[in-house]
Amino acid sequence: MMGWFVVYYRELILMKKKMGKLGYVFSSVMFPVIYLFAFSWGLGSRLEISGGYIPYLAKGILGITVMLNAFQQTSLSVSVGRMYFKTLQTLILSPIPLIQVAGGLVLAGATRGLLLGGVVYGIAWLIFAVPGLNGAALCGVILAAFFFAALGLVVGLWVAEPDDLSLVNNFLITPMIFFGGSFFPEQHFPVFVRELIAILPLSLVNSLLRLPVWEEAALLKAAGLLVFSCLMLWLGARKLALYSE
């Protein structure tokens, strides 16, 4: 069995155990589902967006769900496993190459992000009859899962205490949620803000999610996300190699 797969398998077993607890799934999808209903009912009839606001919002919320679950699952599980339960020691001491350990952890975080993203988009599809995802959107959502899981790995290995995680959530994740074009188009934002947020990973994901057809610009955005993801994966493996208690 390949080393990365053993690590991935380990994470999936642990995830399966947690998924059995009702609170785990609910707490993971509750926040995006509340936003879905609140914004649909509150703004749905007021915003003029080609294709309709609810499909626009559902895709934005899909991006948020994938980001939150991929990032938080990985950062929390890695940081807690490193600082409190010391379960990360087992992975560090195993003969599996550390790049594969990093790969397995990222893949598991991405899987969780995609699964819960699927649940939330499924709810939107069932209740609001939002359309399915095209190739560009699927590419965006998969890359989002990988990027944010890899970011979670780096952050989980970097933080010195749990408070540092909320720092990243407050200063990086939350601004991306509200400024990254998830809930409403950013066209009314000041120009310099638009230019700044255009390069945020969640903005790239959102633009891929909403592309009607695959085009050259999409390829660039996808390539950007892929490069970011690989960079984060490499950084994660590097942090694992420098692991010292």
Binding site: Y9, R10, L14, F85
Partner: peptide
């Protein structure tokens, strides 16, 4: 280690089977 760093959610058999794969 001095402290129990086994995965708490797993059974003894599951934990050992997992470590057998990891190692």
């Amino acid at each position: 280690p001095q402290d129990n760093n086994l995965e708490r959610e797993l059974t003894v058999r599951e934990a050992l089977a997992l470590y057998a794969r990891l190692f």
